[in-house]
Design a protein around this nucleic acid. Structure first.
Length: 260
DNA sequence: ATGCCGAGTTCGACTCGA
């Protein structure tokens, strides 16, 4: 079984490349983030033509997550346990679904903007709600389980191209990394993908300043898997080819092959 | 060549991203 995650940075703008990638990479399940579209505008039929069912959670121009599957979608859950709101608004950032006997969550963790910004505290509260959701779900089922998506956290200093440039920046702070450690304490492990080129499995490169050609990237799209899911992992890689060329997302897909 | 930011909103300057 092949499961992937990809922040597409607008499913509308990315639809031609998304469809081509689904045909070439042929994942059984794809967790998608940053739809930037409401559910009534979700391109359900265009994905169904390729054999994928969709469960989406989008409210408009920002955020939005989905699970695509060609092996069935059941028990869809939108939002987290005791999920915080930002400026009194609910943001669509998490959707869970069971596909082919595997429980997956597609998540788009808040960015945080700056450590002193209210959005950063929102990010930490949101990560606590994710922990609570993981604890509740893994206690209730023995299905292989994983949270996949854009965590907006670089787990270690080597997960950014130059840590010296990240002083006082979000994505690398102690508190954010502690939130990942808490998820690991809850029984999840970081499935480290292999890079297809260079030394580090970056998943994101800014559109600006030649970041991709210079390989100034970050590993922020993560797969956090429970023991059952983790034990089944045969291969994992970042499909950096998909970051190339015109009309790409600024994130590359992370692909995980399970021996299930 | 991997190439100098892109998307949505609502028609063009703004917000957001990390």
């Amino acid at each position: 079984m092949r499961i992937a995650t990809w922040n597409v940075n607008s499913i509308g703008a990315r639809l031609p490349r998304l469809r081509a990638w689904l045909e070439s990479a042929a994942p059984d399940v794809l967790c998608v983030q940053e739809l930037k579209c409401a559910d009534d505008a979700f391109p359900r039929e265009q994905l169904a033509e390729l054999g994928y069912e969709s469960a989406s959670y989008g409210l408009g121009r920002w955020n939005g997550v989905a699970v695509l599957s060609r092996i069935g979608i059941e028990d869809v859950t939108r939002g987290l346990v005791d999920e915080p709101r930002y400026e009194e608004a609910t943001e669509p950032r998490a959707i869970g679904a069971t596909c082919g006997g595997v429980r997956v969550w597609s998540v788009y963790v808040p960015n945080g903007r700056e450590p002193e910004h209210p959005h950063y505290q929102y990010k930490l509260r949101w990560l606590e709600a994710l922990r609570a959701t993981v604890a509740a779900e893994t206690a209730a089922t023995d299905k292989p389980f994983a949270v996949l998506g854009d965590f907006n956290i670089a787990p270690t200093d080597t997960d950014v191209w130059d840590i010296s440039l990240f002083a006082d920046s979000t994505h690398v702070t102690e508190a954010e990394r502690k939130a990942l450690a808490v998820l690991r304490d809850a029984g999840l492990t970081d499935v480290l993908p292999r890079p297809l080129k260079y030394d580090h499995p970056y998943t994101y490169w800014d559109y600006r300043a030649l970041a991709f050609p210079k390989n100034r990237g970050m590993r922020i799209d993560l797969v956090y898997a429970d023991a059952t899911f983790g034990a089944a992992v045969g291969d994992a890689y970042v499909d950096r080819e998909e970051r190339k060329g015109k009309g790409s997302s600024d994130h590359a897909p992370v692909v995980v092959d399970l021996e299930l």
